[in-house]
């Protein structure tokens, strides 16, 4: 099996082997997956279904039950002797929701970023494209300070600060409201395919079958470009660079039909077709735009 794979790559160079050894040296201690699974099941406790669907109702129910219990405690006559029997009401009250639960139920998830230090003529924060942040988005900091994103990377962004100063470690927040932010949040929360190819510079999603057929795509499967990322920095110390998608002049609304001659049906196909090991200068993308077929390439 493994012998079919040509493993004559960087991992087999002296440098590569050294890094492999480093990784293996600091590998986490062994863990017992079975015991872990048992612990998870113990934490889950109750069966799925009704309990989970009641999730949104639990906080008010808990509040009401707690009020009833409190009234019961306050207004009930005091017994002459202390009984050890626990209150049947109190016993059935679920644990009150934690702050984390309440935050989880927010309609709009919140993006929280930390200031990591200076970057170029601004500050570097630890959230970027993967969190749905884009150039122009703003976040709020302590003391009414606002931070506006001037450049993005996949994991980090550069911000310009308005209305004060920010120290390393300061928290910046914003509610996830833009399409990109909600899309990122959905992936983080629910595992929905984000269709994100940030290194390439595009976000894509599956084309509805009816549209694909109307466009004459025989098997009815193709990807539409939802967004292109004009530029991003790969190293926060350097300036952003135009993405391959931007260099190709790929545009939102384009339907990707082929990449390097390979028909692309879904995100997985696109990831494989892009390959990343290919020489970008040889990249060729066939799209449908405005009813016309175009071949985009960098050469």
């Amino acid at each position: 099996m493994s012998s079919e794979l040509d493993t004559d790559g960087y991992d087999n160079t002296p440098e590569g082997r050294e890094l492999v050894a480093l990784l293996q040296r600091y590998a986490p201690p062994a863990v017992d997956s079975r015991a872990g699974a048992q612990a998870v099941l113990a934490r889950i406790g109750k069966p799925r279904g009704r309990v989970l669907r009641l999730g949104n109702w639990l906080p008010p129910l808990v509040g009401a039950a707690a009020a009833v219990a409190l009234a019961f405690v306050i207004f009930s006559p005091k017994p002459d002797t202390q009984l050890d029997t626990p209150s049947p009401v109190a016993k059935d009250i679920p644990a009150p929701p934690t702050q984390a639960d309440i935050r989880h139920d927010r309609r709009f998830p919140e993006i929280v970023a930390l200031v990591r230090g200076a970057s170029g003529d601004g500050l570097l924060i630890d959230a970027g494209l993967k969190d749905g942040l884009r150039v122009g988005d703003t976040l709020s900091g302590p003391g009414g300070v606002t931070a506006r994103i001037t450049a993005v990377g996949v994991f980090e962004s550069r911000v310009a600060v308005v209305g004060g100063t920010l120290m390393t470690g300061a928290e910046l927040r914003t509610a996830a409201t833009t399409d990109a932010q909600l899309r990122a949040a959905k992936f983080a929360e629910f595992g929905e395919d984000p269709g994100a190819f940030f290194g390439f510079g595009a976000l894509v999603s599956g084309l509805p079958l009816s549209e694909a057929r109307m466009l004459g795509i025989s098997d009815g499967a193709a990807l539409r470009v939802d967004e292109t990322i004009p530029a991003l920095f790969k190293d926060p110390a350097s300036d952003p660079q135009a993405t391959l998608a931007a260099q190709l002049d790929l545009r939102a609304g384009d339907v990707i039909v082929e990449v390097n001659g390979t028909h692309v049906r879904n995100s997985s196909d696109l990831g494989q077709a892009l390959g990343w090991s290919l020489d970008p200068k040889l990249l060729s993308v066939r799209v449908l735009r405005g009813g016309k077929q175009l071949d985009l390439n960098l050469r």
Binding site: L5, D6, T7, G9, Y10, D11, E15, G16, L19, V20, G271, Q272, G275, W276, S277
Partner: peptide, 11 residues
Amino acid sequence: TALYQRVCRGL
């Protein structure tokens, strides 16, 4: 193959 390339690039 793609995963092997990913590992090498990651290293």
